[in-house]
């Protein structure tokens, strides 16, 4: 009976994951391997294709041609400097990240017992967990050559991201290094859903008021994850331990990411951070 409960929990978290995260690993891997039947993603590999990629997305979202010049979203790129294009791309990434925070919050709320926790502790768990979750969610979108962005409509090459000016060029490379290794574990979407819930329910986040109920919830999800991995990957030895070890790498990645954003705030005069991301990163590490 206990195993049946754990399987029910795994199914519930998988269903929430599919409901709140629009691009699943299954879909992303299908796009990356060209098995979708739809057209291949638009490839961004240099500044010219970046501006064309913006145009590609804008045309899909705003098909009325007479609206385009007023939007100021990448037309007449001739006079625009690379710095401006990079900064605009960074702002778009921020908006997508803020939307990602909303998706992760909805997923967290669907974890049984989460909304019953002290509200301050819910805020703390999300503040410290959300960037870790977003980095894990990036892994299925990546391969060694680049990453899907814009809900899988665009593929941006790793070399192009490395060619951006400092410190933009340093932002994604550590995530690629992590993702290539993480993807070797070959987790599927159900494994991922349980792992994300384990990350969110970390009882050692600074400032938690009532740790015990969080640890109790995490323990149940950990049991569900262990059972899921044993059933789904019977030949993968020590997979449960290997997955949990990734949590240490994740904390370092988030610390480095936040330091880079703080550096950006000092060096880029025109940079405005999204208020939600500001809230999360303030006094984080």
């Amino acid at each position: 009976p206990e195993s049946a409960d754990l399987r029910t929990l795994a199914k519930h978290l998988y269903e929430s994951y599919v409901k709140y995260f629009p691009l699943t690993k299954a879909k992303a891997r299908a796009i990356l391997s060209g098995k979708t039947g739809d057209s291949a993603p638009f490839v961004i590999h240099d500044m010219k294709s970046l501006t064309e990629g913006e145009q590609f997305i804008n045309c899909k979202q705003m098909p009325l041609p007479d609206q385009r010049p007023e939007m100021g979203l990448g037309f007449g790129m001739g006079q625009e400097s690379a710095d401006e294009v990079e900064l605009r791309f960074f702002h778009r990434c921020q908006f997508r990240s803020a939307e990602g925070v909303r998706e992760v919050t909805e997923f967290a709320k669907s974890i049984p017992g989460f909304v019953g926790l002290d509200l301050n502790d819910q805020v703390t768990l999300l503040k410290y967990g959300v960037i870790e979750v977003l980095i894990i969610m990036m892994a299925p979108l990546m391969n060694k050559d680049g990453t899907l962005i814009s809900y899988g409509q665009i593929f941006m090459t790793r070399e192009f991201l490395k060619s951006l000016r400092k410190p933009f060029c340093e932002m994604m490379e550590p995530k690629f290094e992590f993702s290539v290794k993480f993807n070797m574990l070959e987790l599927d979407d159900c494994d991922m859903a349980l792992f994300l819930a384990v990350i969110i329910l970390s009882g050692d986040r600074p400032g938690l008021l009532n740790v015990k109920p969080i640890e109790d919830l995490q323990e149940t999800v950990l049991h569900a994850l262990e059972l899921q991995l044993k059933m789904n990957h019977p030949d993968s030895l020590q997979l449960f331990a290997k997955v949990l070890q990734k949590m240490t790498d994740l904390r370092q990645l988030v610390t480095d990411h936040v330091h880079l954003i703080q550096l950006l705030k000092k060096t880029e005069i025109d940079l405005c951070l999204h208020p939600l991301l500001q809230e999360i990163m303030k006094d984080l590490y």
């Binding site: 919050t105 909805e106 301050n120 805020v123 939600l276």
Partner: peptide, 21 residues
């Protein structure tokens, strides 16, 4: 803590549409 995290708090209390963000 929730006072310093008004948007997160709002997201936890109600779902917010992408446009609001």
């Amino acid at each position: 803590l929730k006072e310093k995290h008004k948007i997160l708090h709002r997201l936890l209390q109600n779902s917010t549409s992408p446009v609001d963000l």
